[in-house]
């Protein structure tokens, strides 16, 4: 029963995704081509990996506004490391490390510093973006060795890493969330933190781990982002915090924590990616695009909510 609950949640957004796919399949002859479907996955890869981390945080009742700034900072720092040292391995460690450190910092400030997640990560967003500008002097750092670009531009047996990485990340996180005590604790913290603490669980420790995990995933997203466009730019990933949160929420996760499925989050990310892709294919006037995007997002969440009510 518990398992089916986890799987069912987010099926509403799946219905919405299928409807959107049908609309675009009918209106654009090239939409359903394998190549295009691959393009869509590649285009949502970064945001989906980041959204996975954001989802864990939201499950605990928190929020993370820092991801855009962190992508920019981890991006420019590792870009300059790979350019100056010539060592892709070192730069990859730096990219993941910078984001991980900021994740741990956020977790510590929120738990031990008692700063609300919204304010704390808003501050980190600004600091990280600012540091990215200071560090790079506002100038993009471009052209990397292939090994450093592997996560963003490489492929294994013809399958892009931008497809492989999200699949691996989501599979692993599904197991963590649904098959480990850690996953149960994450849900428990979001449902009732005090009660969880009273059962003898060190909720602060687990929350720091969650923010650290999200940081690491943001670092991975940064690696994919700069590898793909072959450039680290302090203005990278503008607005990604909202895109990540939107993917999580469209995917049926409750903003108040405790409820949500990892499968829903990838569907949420795909919904946004499919809309962006379809609007380009149909050559819809850019003036109308954000209107369409906003409307579809609201409709998608409406479908999800209604399907839940019917089940309840």
């Amino acid at each position: 029963m518990k398992l089916s609950f986890g799987l069912l949640r987010g099926t509403g957004s799946l219905i919405a995704l299928v409807l959107i796919v049908i609309v675009f399949s009918v209106t654009s002859p090239v939409f359903l081509e394998l190549n295009n479907l691959m393009n869509i996955i590649v285009q949502v890869a970064v945001i989906s990996v980041i959204a996975a981390g954001a989802m864990f945080i939201i499950l605990t009742g928190g929020i993370d506004l820092s991801v855009g700034g962190m992508v920019a900072l981890a991006g420019v720092v590792s870009a300059s490391v790979v350019r100056s040292s010539g060592s892709p391995a070192l730069a990859i460690v730096v990219c993941l490390g910078v984001a991980l450190m900021f994740g741990i910092l956020a977790g510590a400030l929120i738990t031990y510093g008692k700063i609300p997640p919204f304010v704390c990560t808003l501050g980190i967003m600004s600091v990280a973006r600012g540091l990215a500008f200071v560090y790079s002097g506002g100038i993009p750092i471009s052209n990397f060795p292939a090994a450093f670009r592997f996560a963003g531009a490489g492929s294994i047996a013809g399958v892009p890493m931008m497809v492989i990485i999200p699949i691996v990340v989501y599979a692993a996180l599904w197991v963590v969330l649904n098959r480990t005590p850690f996953g149960k604790i994450v849900y428990a913290i979001g449902s009732n933190e005090e009660a969880t603490q009273l059962t003898g669980i060190n909720t602060r420790k687990y929350k720091i781990i969650v923010y650290a995990l999200a940081g690491l995933l943001t670092g991975l997203g940064a690696l994919m982002y700069i590898g793909r466009i072959n450039s680290g730019h302090p203005n990278s990933a503008l607005g990604y915090e909202l895109d990540a949160i939107a993917a999580v929420v469209i995917g049926g996760t409750s903003l108040s924590g405790g409820r949500g499925s990892i499968v829903g989050t990838i569907i949420g990310a795909l919904i946004m990616g499919v809309i962006g892709n379809g609007l380009n294919l149909l050559n819809i006037d850019p003036y109308y695009q954000s209107v369409v995007l906003g409307t579809v997002i609201v409709l998608a969440v409406m479908i999800d909510q209604n399907s839940k009510n019917q089940r309840a």
Binding site: V46, Y225, S231, N280, L281
Partner: peptide, 15 residues
Amino acid sequence: QRAKGMNVMQNILQA
């Protein structure tokens, strides 16, 4: 933006 430019170009080439 560069990343968006890449996505949009990919979609245009598809169509």
